[in-house]
Amino acid sequence: MRKVAYYKGCLASLSAKELDSATQALAPKVGLELVELESVTCCGAGDIHEADPDYYLHLNARILSYAAAEGVDTLLTVCNVCTLNLRQANFMLLGDTELRARVNENLVSVGVPAYERDVDVRHLLWEIAEGEGYELLKSAAHKGLKGLKIAPFYGCQILRPSKIQGFEDPDRPWSLERIIEACGGEAIDYPAKIKCCGFPIIQAREETALGELIQPIEQAYEAGADAIVTPCPLCHLSLDAWQSKLKKSTGRDFKMPILHLSQLVGVAAGLEESELKFKRHVVSVKPVLEKLEA
């Protein structure tokens, strides 16, 4: 079992509680002992990075520092945006000793330990797509997905900017497909799988966002997918909670179930509904579950 610091982020704490509960239940099965970080805040998303960039840097430095204080090497995330924000802040600090010194001085002055020992920020997706995590995944996914057709939706910020994320080729990613197949599902290919769901502007520019959102949902639907899986709870919110808005603009009711990564693997690994919490989804996951029971 590998001990990792666990930063769940805002959505997994609140509106996407199902992500947190599925992740916590899944973790031991893939060899991860989660140490949940509590003295943390929102990572700021792209919003604090834009509205108050110095504050963004300090908030994330604080998260990194508390992770390091747990004595672990890895800070585990379950959200694309958290991953990008934390990794970006991490690179800013690791690459500039003067900046790190200034930030640390500020952290210490408000009672936060200095960020001295380096940690690496990694999304759960990366942990279970290869190496030991992947091996454990294969043996854990005993219940299997029974050939279910799953459309992977990566979500922009787990892939780009690739100089910060760097786990896989941003134009030819493979991690979700590999996981889907290891769980006994069939991965669907479609062009919009690496495009944007529109979440960052879904409130400020709804029409534009829906013009983006329609693409993965429509393409996955036409490719015959039973469900979409995504490693980002923000994408999940768009794809799931805002899917009904597409009815109005397109006249089509796709009824496409959207699964968090932890849930997809969790289902294959035999987790219970009390852990998966599919009931919290806006678009019903029943068709998927029925296919699996059949």
Binding site: D54, D96, L99
Partner: peptide, 16 residues
């Protein structure tokens, strides 16, 4: 603050 808050990280990110 303002753009300076983002520019301050560019030196490190350029190394990437």
């Amino acid at each position: 603050n303002g753009f300076a808050g983002i520019v301050q990280g560019e030196h490190a990110l350029a190394r990437l």
